[in-house]
Nucleic acid binder design. Structure first.
Length: 559
RNA sequence: GACCCCAUCGUCUAGUCAGGUCAGGACGUCAGGUUUUCAUCCUGAAAACAGGGGUUCGAAUCCCCUUGGGGUCGCCA
């Protein structure tokens, strides 16, 4: 491959909301393809919608991308990524560039000014719909004479610029995954390339930027397939070279609906409607005006924090759809990356689990799957488990510590570093996510006085059933524990195994489970010796005593 | 509705481009087993070429139709 034909790919998100998994997969494919051919991967922020763009959101994208390990060679600067000399990489900074090319099209007659108002167009669309006709812009402004146009301009009438679709010629585009895609003449309408506010539309900006940034391969979601003929025509009119397109199929929810970044808002809105709420719940901390606006506009999105608060107030579980959601849920970045790659691409054969380096060596366009894929959380979870089990123990401890630092700082505050290490290690073999240990190990950081033994089947089974019962054994073992010399997992194991030999017919479970319930308030914990070691002698005995003291209440409830 | 895209176990997929192995793997499911709880772990099983027509000695594979699914139809990207 010559240096001129060096691969250059780009990921071009609009900075609205967080990076969702579909976008992440597109970015990953672009990245992998560039790496595979020693090319460049660029990042460009498509912020030509003044109403929706926000600086914060694009920061979120960068963070999400870099968490996944997708680094970009050119684009916005962020840590060690970004830079490059085909920028600026924010479209809002490139307005003068677009205007130049816009003028070129205007001069050649390939584009023209159109003065219809949004309301007029809206009415025309509705009418077409009512008449069961496909709507297409009627080119009314194309036949305006120059004097009229000049007078409109003098009056300061707002206008857009439309691209004039060449007549009578079918558009054929080659797609690296789909093959030839053909659209007959007359199917396309004269689409808008510059909005009334002077900003280019997506179609125009994307074409100009891809050319100027030397993009050779455009890998993107199939939702863009219908736009591609428009882009091809624009490129032809501008004298640009067409890139290689590769349209990747979409990712769906298990129920078959499109996995959309708006799913959270959808879930929230439908709950709000189901309850007939017209004002935000008291504890959601949302002001009424923005709540009403959000409720009325199905395109509106709540930011993550607000959505989370509202979900809590409503008792709704939000679907995981953004990269950040999976991070919060305790998935490992390399696992998400692996799974995402597998959703729509495969290396062939039976290989499924691989890392970033493998992708960078082996990824190619010809193995991208054409059909849409459903996102299977169970499989992701299984991959995450495999990865955690394969990890070096010390690395896992580091990962869990990092996770807690961000999402569960109380675990670090309430435990000594030694306790935390032991806590992490005792969970490594049994957790599927980084969140599992903190969810199931909440009791570790609770005050001893906060542990309760609610009346439930597993608790009664462990404490009340049998003769001797769990309570009987707890009372019997207390003294032995109190007298134990060195309080650590090994000595606890020796001690309790010996004790079980003489008191439980060598069945360690007979004492393990009552102890587990006594110190945790529930039937689940890490291995019992680790659990007691982490808790320490003082907490263990305090919880034991309180549990024993609750005996009559629980036995009373059981009858 | 119009246009475009897609179609192998429940799910992700290998096999398709160069027709010829009991259609392979993984996740999930089910049945056993190991285990101090949960989670692991081990063994085994059920499970698919959407339907119909061609072409061919032979079709998951090539062609056509039907059906089903999806995308797009914005001064969003």
């Amino acid at each position: 491959m010559t240096s001129e034909s060096r691969v250059r790919t780009r990921f071009a998100p609009s900075p609205t909301g967080h990076l969702h998994v579909g976008g992440a997969r597109s970015a990953l494919f672009c990245w992998a393809f560039a790496r595979r051919y020693q090319g460049k991967f660029l990042l460009r922020i498509e912020d030509t919608d003044q109403k929706r763009s926000s600086v914060d959101a694009s920061q979120g994208f960068l963070e999400d991308l870099s968490w996944l390990g997708i680094d970009w060679d050119e684009g916005p600067k962020w840590k060690s990524c970004g830079g490059g000399d085909t920028g600026p990489y924010e479209q809002s900074q490139r307005l003068d560039i677009y205007d130049r090319y816009m003028q070129q099209l205007l001069n050649s007659g390939a584009a023209y000014r159109a003065f219809e108002t949004p309301d007029e167009l809206d009415a025309a669309r509705r009418q077409a719909r009512a008449e069961k006709r496909a709507y297409k812009y009627n080119r009314a402004s194309l036949s305006l004479d120059e004097a009229t146009i000049k007078s409109y301009l003098d009056q300061g009438r707002p206008y857009v610029i439309r691209f004039r679709i060449p007549d009578d010629q079918p558009v054929v585009v080659q797609d690296a995954v789909l093959g030839e895609v053909r659209v007959e003449a007359g199917e396309l309408e004269d689409f808008v390339i510059r909005k009334a506010d002077g900003f280019p539309t997506y179609h125009f900006a994307v074409v100009v930027d891809d050319e100027l940034m030397g993009v050779t391969h455009v890998i993107r979601g199939q939702e863009h397939l219908a736009n591609t003929p428009k882009h091809a025509l624009l490129q032809d009119a501008l004298g640009f070279t067409r890139p290689v397109w590769a349209h990747v199929s979409l990712i769906f929810n298990p129920d078959g609906s499109k996995m959309s970044k708006r799913d959270k808002d959808k879930a929230l809105r439908s709950e709000v409607r189901a309850r007939g709420l017209t004002a935000p719940p008291d504890d959601s901390d949302i002001d009424t005006a923005s709540f009403e606006h959000w409720l009325a506009d199905k395109h509106a999105q709540l930011d993550t924090d607000t959505a989370t608060r509202l979900a809590q107030a409503l008792g709704v579980t939000l679907p995981e759809i953004n990269v950040d959601d999976f991070r919060r849920a305790g998935y490992l970045p390399e696992v998400l990356l692996n799974y995402l790659a597998l959703l729509g691409w495969s290396p062939g054969g039976d290989l499924e689990q691989f890392d970033r380096a493998f992708l960078a060596d082996h990824f190619d366009l010809d193995r991208i799957v054409k059909s849409p894929a459903k996102f299977d959380r169970a499989k992701l979870l299984a991959f995450n488990l495999d990865a955690i089990q394969d990890m070096e123990a010390v690395h896992f401890v580091d990962c869990l510590r990092e996770f807690c630092k961000v999402y569960e700082p109380s675990f670090l505050d309430m435990m000594t570093p030694e306790q935390f290490d032991c806590f992490a290690l005792s969970n490594k073999e049994r957790c599927k996510t980084l969140r599992d240990p903190v969810d199931s190990g909440r009791f570790f950081i609770l005050d001893d006085l906060a542990i309760e033994w609610p009346d439930s089947k597993p608790i009664r089974k462990a404490l009340c059933k049998g003769s001797p019962s769990g309570f009987d054994r707890l009372e019997a073992v207390r003294e032995t524990l109190e007298a134990l010399q060195n309080w650590n997992a090994d000595s606890l194991e020796t001690c309790l195994t010996e004790w079980a030999a003489s008191h439980c017919e060598e069945q360690i479970g007979k004492i393990a489970q009552p102890l587990r319930v006594a110190v945790s308030g529930g039937p689940v914990s890490p291995p019992i010796f680790d659990t007691l070691a982490i808790l320490g002698r003082e907490s263990t005995l305090a919880r034991l005593d309180r549990c024993i003291a609750s005996r009559s209440a629980l036995e009373g409830a059981a009858t």
